[in-house]
Design a binder for these strands. Structure first.
Lengths: 217, 217
DNA sequence: AGCCTTCAATAACCCATGTTGCCGAAATTT
DNA sequence: AAATTTCGGCAACATGGGTTATTGAAGGCT
């Protein structure tokens, strides 16, 4: 299986890389901290999120293998959101300074980085549409479909089945819902034969109907 | 007053630019269309938005003088969202091809463009937090404060007063609320002496209290 | 194996926000 | 300035989703 260290396709003169692992539920990056490294996720899932003063959190995005821990980290030493591992995680670390140097030398790498950044932005925009205008069922259906597409694009889904390590709490924190309501919706999906979840594996049983739900208001 | 044509600071070898005006409520860019130009807003407000199949729309962001009509347009010919003028608009148009050429020649310009892109992303992330975790009053308070900060940074606010051409419908379309509910909240703000709106001018009367409301759940 | 923690399902109740409809004011067009 | 459209305020009512609490199952740890 691809290791995803090479997403940026740095070519012959590859940069020094260090691999690092994190246990599930660890803080990979804490909001406001300064870092000198850029992480690429090789294996496992993570999430970027913001914690509010009352303890609730909003997940901004889920990160899967092949994702950079935010393109912004390449240009800014510190971010206003945190990143936490959702599963055990394997990352490939690059030095920011070295990567930036590479950018000026190799415009192809810069292009690839810009493309990653724009993909992040487009996902964020679609999240805004979900949160602003869709009801709970459509939001969750969209999340599932979007994750499936992203996993497929990286060769991490076989047919309509894929690893799905998310807890209902995390789905709620991403889609602006409570765990109770996420549970209601997921069970409705199950009872209607749209999906099946067992042992952290998601299987989509009725794709066209799930798409229909995702397009409801 | 600054014209904002120079946001990208293209320097001596300035690009050919064309100025264009739009009346209020016109489509500046239609989702999916291919364009060869990049617009910088010199005067007036616009909004990028997505229209759903049932006619409702979600506004992704408000664009004010000095904003690019999305950094993404520099790299991608077509976008999945539209841009509409909210007021009469003056824009400065650059050719994408020429601008891209300039990018490879002048890394400073590239940096500035990346910085614009990251600012867009950060605004989008903050919108996600608002929509996901804040109630109507906090969302609207945050929108007002965020717009004030952005206008101030461009020298377009005098003290706590600034142009505010948004209709309640547009506030609702941006913050995932109905016009009725926007009206309820705005009137509450008025009655509590937080803000004053008259003739498309917003004045913040009690900044600290408005900030407090913005930080409530 | 036993203990403890996390996770999910479910029910009863509540509240923030949506829906519909109406009216008058303000803005825009003619 | 008359006509028309847009806009905002308001009230009555409906509902999607939140809150709280309880229970059992699943998963980790010693």
């Amino acid at each position: 299986m691809a290791s995803f260290c090479g997403v940026l396709d740095l070519g012959q003169s590859a940069l020094r890389q260090v691999h690092q692992t994190y246990r599930a539920r660890r803080i990979v990056y804490r909001a406001g901290d300064e870092t000198e490294d850029i992480d690429v996720i090789c294996d496992g899932w993570a999430a970027s999120s913001v914690r509010l003063s009352d303890g609730r959190q909003q997940i901004l995005s889920f990160l899967i293998p092949g994702d950079l821990v935010s393109v912004a980290t390449v240009f800014e030493k510190s971010q206003f959101y945190s990143v936490q591992s959702l599963t055990d995680l394997r990352c490939c670390k690059f030095s920011r300074a070295e990567l930036q140097k590479k950018l000026t030398e190799n415009p192809k790498v810069f292009e690839r980085l810009v493309a990653c950044g724009m993909a992040e932005k487009q996902l964020a925009d679609q999240t805004i549409v979900s949160l602003g205008r869709r009801n709970a069922a459509a939001r969750i259906a969209r999340l599932i479909l979007s994750l499936m597409e992203r996993l497929k694009a990286r060769g991490l889904a076989h047919g309509q089945s894929f690893d799905f390590p998310l807890r209902q709490q995390q789905i709620g924190d991403a889609m602006g819902l409570t765990t109770v309501h996420v549970s209601r919706v997921i069970n409705m999906f199950r009872k209607e034969g749209l999906i099946e979840i067992a042992q952290r594996q998601m299987k989509i049983l009725n794709l066209s109907e799930l798409r229909r739900v995702a397009d409801e208001r």
